[in-house]
Amino acid sequence: MLRVENIYKTFNPNTVNEKKALDDVSLRLNEGDFVTVIGGNGAGKSTLLNALAGVWLVDSGRIYIDNINVTRLPEHKRAKYLGRVFQDPMMGTAATMGIDENLALAARRGKFRSLMPGITAKEKAHYKELLAELDLGLETRLTSKVGLLSGGQRQALTLLMASLKKPKLLLLDEHTAALDPKTAVKVLETTERIVQKDNLTTLMITHNMKDAIAHGNRLIMMNNGRIILDISGEEKKKLTVEDLLEKFAVASGKELDNDRMMLG
């Protein structure tokens, strides 16, 4: 489904701020894989997701989604294959537009935007049903501006938008990090439900090791722009936080001492 071959990305090359963000990263995802990504600050997790999404082009290497070479495709064209949810709840939706209008925008992902009506009555009825499934009471506020919603509601809506047109790959960039713990749990539950419903191939960054272990069928750990650990199947099911810390120490040659990586 996803094939990443030896991609490199260096920010600010040939300056004092030079930063090798991705250093020979290769990755293969099978259809239906739900992969969690962990790693400290600056490990290259978000950079990897941005490289896949086409926010900028990689320096070298190739990216295939469903055997289509997307390496040189600009962000808006690649969007056809991708569903994305960001860390910042403000980033995934248009705040001044209605809930229904945001969904209608997402429903036309990958389609030419014509002069046909931007939203139809039939669509609205369909969105109402989908929103009801979120169980946040949004189905009664269909035309409310998204700017009036809470962070958790926005993330749930962004998830719904990302999966509205079944994406070949769902990219979740620490999408619960900015939420309070209770809301984060709820959004994670919604994530799990949406991913399972459509059997979506998913890449989820998280800074919470417990979440990384509890969700998905595969876990990768990044450090200094490289994938240093890749655990799947039975081994992943038995994994504990202590195992991870130990494996990190072995794989990177140093102790994991990052405040932002949450153990609990």
């Binding site: 969007a79 403000m90 248009a94 925008l105 014509s114 931007g118």
Partner: peptide
């Protein structure tokens, strides 16, 4: 009429949130 069409709605999204627009496949 125009800002109610698919294209018009994508124009409003472009002004409101260009990141989200590109993620939804809109050529900003």
């Amino acid at each position: 009429w125009f800002f109610g069409t698919e294209r018009g709605a994508s124009l409003r999204a472009t002004g409101c949130n260009p990141n989200m627009s590109r993620a939804q496949g809109i050529n900003t």
